[in-house]
């Protein structure tokens, strides 16, 4: 067993220092060490997007990032998106447009949608569909997710 490595990172605005195993992914550390279980584990090969988080200003599949790589970095997870007890406009739009069925993929979807609107405040349908293609929804809420993103954009953004 290789020795644990001390890392320091900012998660949802809060500084965290912890020792991580070199082979543990950011996903594992968020879920298991930091108890931030909103980020979900599914495919572990960067295909489903359920583990999407924001790392240093860009969304990534946290299953494909070693936790040590995030040393010194700034991470935002689904728990850090909205103020405590509230919803972002985008999160509200997801509910109003019926974009949530089982909900398991939704934290990843919301993180990806949030990123999309940061990059492209007024996206076209094609941009939304391309931008969200890294997040699988087996309940098949894609049309509603697109509607929610467009509605949030229309109403003033994320």
């Amino acid at each position: 067993m290789s020795p644990a490595i001390p890392i320091a990172l900012t998660v949802n605005g809060r500084s965290r220092t912890l020792d991580v195993a070199p082979h543990h992914t950011l996903l594992e550390v968020l879920r298991d060490d930091l108890a931030l279980t909103g980020t979900k584990e599914c495919c572990l090969v960067g295909e489903c997007g359920a583990c999407t988080v924001r790392l240093d200003g860009r969304i990534v599949d946290s299953c494909l990032v070693l936790a040590v790589e995030a040393d010194g970095g700034e991470v935002t997870t689904i728990e850090g998106l909205a103020p405590e007890g509230g919803l972002t406009r985008l999160q509200g739009a997801f509910l109003d447009k019926g974009a949530v069925q089982c909900g398991f993929c939704i934290p990843g979807q919301v993180m990806a949608a949030d990123d999309l609107l940061r990059r492209s405040p007024h996206p076209t349908v094609a941009e939304v569909e391309e931008g969200m293609a890294g997040n699988l929804c087996r309940c098949g809420c894609y049309a509603q997710i697109t509607e929610a993103i467009l509605a949030a954009a229309e109403e003033g953004g994320r």
Partner: peptide, 9 residues
């Protein structure tokens, strides 16, 4: 190449 998340890495 992959999704947005992949292209970011």
């Amino acid at each position: 190449v992959g999704s947005v998340q992949i292209r970011n890495r």
